[in-house]
């Protein structure tokens, strides 16, 4: 499997993070993170469990308040926004949760309609149905429209979760462990779906994972979170195959050798 080729062309940062710090009690999770996400790229954030990868994207989405640092998303400083402004910004972000976070009491159709009805005014029933059908077709699961989340497999749930975020046509996608808990074949399908979303919707994405196959397949650029900072950034080859860093090598060997 060859690593994905980086996106070429002019680069404009859609997310800029500077000196980001957050602690939970005595546990210093992020210790001065600097990161840029450029227009149209898939940035994979790698790191061991508990290193603060998910915390990072929750800060970007305004779900967690950092102790220090700045987070600029699409030109807006997330920490300075009031509730209404933050809600407006969130509509430009698609957040795919680790466990899909589908609403258990709603059907697939209602799950997809939920953000649409609440955020887009003056939509007719036909418009809503069309948007739902398109989003489901995007992830290849049109037949599940009337099913409950409990009737879906893990991979299907992930896809529906992604479809629910796509329905609002976000500019930036945030994927939290998109392949966690999935078999290799389903993981591969999700990886290809992430690439398709990038190509079809021209989104910029941050993908949180500790799965190197996922990183290699979807990542235009890899950022490795070590001890609360991004110490290694670059293409997959730069971070792993041409690297002498012991921690990166260890991560690589556990994924591909063991």
């Amino acid at each position: 499997m060859n690593p994905k080729k980086p996106v070429k062309g002019p680069k404009e940062a859609v997310i800029t993070i500077r000196d980001l710090k957050i602690s939970f009690g005595d546990l210093h999770v992020l210790r001065g993170v600097d990161l840029d996400l450029y227009q149209g790229e898939n940035l994979v954030v790698l790191g061991r469990s508990g290193t603060g990868k998910s915390v990072l994207i929750k800060i970007i989405a305004g779900l967690l308040e950092p102790d220090q640092g700045s987070v600029t998303v699409l030109g807006e400083d997330v920490r300075q926004l009031n509730k209404r402004e933050l809600d407006a910004l969130r509509l430009k972000l698609g957040f795919s949760f680790q466990n899909s976070a589908l609403y258990d009491s709603m059907t697939v159709r209602e799950n997809l309609e939920f953000p649409l009805i609440r955020n887009v005014r003056n939509l007719s029933r036909a418009d809503i149905d069309k948007a739902v059908e398109e989003a489901l077709a995007d992830v290849g699961l049109s037949q599940t429209i009337n099913q409950m989340p409990s009737e879906l497999s893990g991979g299907q749930r992930k896809r529906i979760g992604i479809a629910r975020t796509l329905i609002l046509k976000p500019e930036i996608m945030l994927y939290d462990e998109p392949t966690a808990g999935l078999d290799p074949i389903t993981s591969n399908e999700i990886n290809h779906l992430i690439n398709e979303v990038q190509e079809r919707h021209n989104t910029s994405s941050i993908i949180i994972t500790h799965d190197l196959t996922c990183a290699k397949t979807v990542g235009d650029r890899i950022a490795m979170l070590l001890d609360g900072r991004f110490e290694r950034q670059g293409t997959f080859d730069e971070v792993f195959e041409d690297s002498n860093d012991e921690r990166a090598k260890q991560f690589y060997e556990y994924n591909f050798v063991n």
Partner: peptide, 15 residues
């Protein structure tokens, strides 16, 4: 809903 992140999902979808 809290432990399966459904509440956070609502929050990020502008609800």
């Amino acid at each position: 809903m809290r432990v399966t992140e459904q509440i956070e999902a609502m929050e990020v979808s502008g609800t």
